[in-house]
């Protein structure tokens, strides 16, 4: 069992003929992901790694029964690509692209909401379900092992770091979700917690947050009231100065808002232990399990 993606998910890759699209299509197929179609306007009839290419999402859905989308389209056109996937009813829509204008993000997120569709990202490494051998994303599959801990994160490589630590400690993952590093993302931390709460096979959660906004604080409030299983946290950016964007568009302390200290306190107050170093996550999980 897992959230958002399972063994029956059939993925269409938007932008499959680009460098990133090609590379990650191969990598997803190798991992076991059911990549059933790709799109690239004007290139129907071609194949990428044996995956048929279509001119539009609606054709891809008609021919291959695709159910979910992953987007490798350059930022100026990523919003349009997401709207096309949403219009066709694909769910989830995983937007890997970085640097998408916030206006386009707002539009795609609310278009999806109206249809009950989950957008993951933009600026996300995607979703992986080791138990179903499905990754709809760009993460290195081998660092994630199958198990019962849900993992959510606003960053990419830091997630791999923590997942690798868990794998080495013999702790497996039910689903890992990259929420995305932008200020406005589709699936939020609190919504992620709610999804995992409904998943009977997820017995504990790891929340990897970072400076900026108050998504972790909001999730903490929810956890203290509604979530009874163990949760371990990690917050990146304890030493980041205010007013500077730390790589991610969303990782910025504005005035006194969005500090790591405030997030750690909120999580602690909700009974969530927060690791000081990434390697402490696996240890804290072991203690709480």
């Amino acid at each position: 069992m897992a959230v958002l993606v399972d063994k029956d998910t059939r993925v269409v890759v938007q932008g499959i003929t680009g460098t990133q699209g090609r590379y990650h299509t191969a990598s997803m197929l190798k991992y076991g992901t059911k990549v059933v179609a790709g799109t690239s306007p004007g290139k129907s009839g071609q194949e990428v790694n044996g995956v048929p290419v279509f001119d539009s999402i609606s054709e891809a859905v008609k021919a291959e029964d695709a159910t979910a989308s992953i987007i490798f389209i350059p930022a100026p056109f990523a919003g349009d690509a997401a709207l096309e996937a949403i219009a066709a009813g694909l769910n989830p829509v995983v937007v890997i692209t970085e640097h998408v204008p916030v206006k386009d993000e707002i539009r795609m997120i609310h278009a999806a909401k109206q249809k009950g569709i989950t957008v993951i990202g933009p600026n996300t490494p995607g979703v992986i379900v080791p138990g179903a051998k499905q990754k709809v994303g760009i993460m290195p599959g081998h660092v994630f092992s199958d198990g019962k801990v849900g993992l959510m994160s606003r960053s990419g490589t830091l997630t791999y770091e923590i997942a690798a630590g868990m794998t080495n400690a013999g702790i497996g993952i039910s689903t890992a979700i990259g929420l995305g590093g932008d200020p406005c993302v589709g699936l939020t931390t609190i919504e992620g917690v709610k999804l995992f709460k409904e998943d009977k096979n997820t017995k504990a959660l790891v929340i990897v947050g970072e400076i900026g906004g108050d998504a972790e604080e909001r999730a903490a409030t929810y956890i203290s009231k509604e979530y009874d299983l163990p949760v371990v946290g990690f917050i990146a950016g304890r030493t980041a100065p205010p007013g500077k964007r730390m790589g991610h568009a969303g990782a910025i302390i504005s005035g006194s808002a969005g500090t790591a200290a405030a997030k750690i306190k909120a999580l602690n107050d909700a009974g969530v232990e927060v690791a000081e170093k990434p390697s402490d996550v696996a240890r804290l999980l072991k203690e709480s399990l």
């Binding site: 994160s153 606003r154 960053s155 990419g156 490589t157 830091l158 997630t159 770091e161 590093g181 990897v208 970072e210 400076i211 990690f234 990146a236 950016g237 304890r238 030493t239 980041a240 730390m246 790589g247 991610h248 990782a251 000081e276 170093k277 990434p278």
Partner: peptide, 20 residues
């Protein structure tokens, strides 16, 4: 480093050991 989150976490780890 590679990745914004990992870079931030590395900065933080340096500070844990008394560096800046």
């Amino acid at each position: 480093c590679n990745g914004a989150g990992l870079t931030m976490a590395t900065l933080d780890a340096v500070s844990v050991y008394g560096g800046e």
